[in-house]
Amino acid sequence: MIYLWLKAAHVASVLLFVGGTLALLLAGAALGTRQPGDAEQAQSLRAMVRWWDARITAPAMIAAWALGIWLAMSGDWFSNSWLQVKLLLVILLSGLHGMLSGRLRRFDALASPAAAKPPMIVSFLTLGCVLGISILAVVKPG
């Protein structure tokens, strides 16, 4: 029974973490394509996303890690190859979140708009990690 509650809490944390990371990506893209006269709107968007990141996304990431490790220990899955690959993808996704969060903090509303836009490879890597993690968690191949 406790397993199901742990799993539910882990899934909820992961959804919030992934949602927040995608919000960071979108905010970066929106800030990167803003018009010169939109400085005030850009500032409020950045403040809002940063608030969400600090209060929701980052704690959700920590909770997802803690609950995931707890689940893996309870199932004794650390020796399984699907979990080892999934852990690598989770580390990469967490790193991408750190990078996006750092980039958002670097630029203020007056900075060059193009510089705020995350490189396309970051979007592909983020989506690829989410896809890979979902498949490995559900299918558990190997």
Binding site: I69, M99, G102, R103, R106
Partner: peptide, 17 residues
């Protein structure tokens, strides 16, 4: 875990310049 946390904060700090 402490090392992973350190790596995360390091990536964030480098990205934030």
């Amino acid at each position: 875990l402490a090392f992973l946390f350190f790596l995360y904060v390091l990536v964030e700090a480098i990205s934030a310049r």
